[in-house]
């Protein structure tokens, strides 16, 4: 190394940042990094909330669509007024004749048995699953109604009990003993 280089090096080596300045810079750098991290956490939090909201909304919409589809199916079956395959006023007889059913068709709600007369039943399908469609008549009004019973599946589990009107049909949905039940009647008949 030349005399010149050495002199220059000596000069620059004698120069250094004041100790307080170094400490300030190092302290600031940690603070800057921390604030950056907290900003990242904030963004991550907002993103997580948005994701949860989005997933929740998606599930809600999916549920709503599924309920709507179910109501449409029930209303359509009711309006078809198909003839019964087993004509009887005994639930036990329908159960016996329609032997492919692996669930009880007898409603737990006694009011159904007391207030409605069974006329017969036939196989049908609800949401792709095997179901029974029972033709009943309300004793008080004489109105013909359709009672549906099917086994609860994972997808039907999400359905919430409700009273609704769909395509001019009044529908009541409820759950009993691991089964989904629905009763449908014409809107005009009840008015």
């Amino acid at each position: 190394m030349s005399n010149f280089d050495e002199t220059i090096k000596r000069y620059y080596s004698s120069m250094s940042l004041p100790a307080e300045k170094v400490e300030t810079i190092l302290a600031n750098s940690v603070r800057v990094r921390k604030s950056l991290f907290s900003r990242y956490y904030k963004f991550a939090g907002i993103a997580a909330l948005l994701l949860i909201g989005f997933v929740g909304l998606h599930l809600q919409l999916h549920k709503a669509t599924m309920t709507e589809r179910l109501l449409a199916e029930i209303a359509m079956n009711h309006q078809k007024r198909l003839n019964v395959e087993v004509s009887t006023d005994q639930y036990e007889v329908v159960q016996e004749k329609l032997n492919r059913l692996d669930f009880s068709i007898l409603p737990v709600k006694s009011e159904l048995i007391v207030n409605y007369t069974l006329l017969g039943g036939r196989y049908c399908s609800i949401h792709g699953g095997l179901a029974v469609q029972l033709k009943v008549r309300e004793k008080a009004s004489g109105e013909f109604m359709t009672l549906y019973v099917t086994k609860l599946t994972d997808t039907l589990e999400d359905i919430t009990p409700l009273d609704a009107e769909f395509d001019g049909v009044r529908i009541r949905l409820w759950k009993e003993d691991n089964r989904l039940l629905a009763i449908a009647g014409n809107k005009e008949a009840s008015q």
Binding site: M15, T24, N28, S29, V32, R33, L36
Partner: peptide, 20 residues
């Protein structure tokens, strides 16, 4: 010197923010 101090501080903080 003061300009050099500012320059090094700003550069350091910029880098630290990006790369730790």
């Amino acid at each position: 010197e003061p300009d050099a101090e500012d320059l090094v501080q700003e550069s350091w903080l910029r880098l630290y923010k990006k790369r730790g």
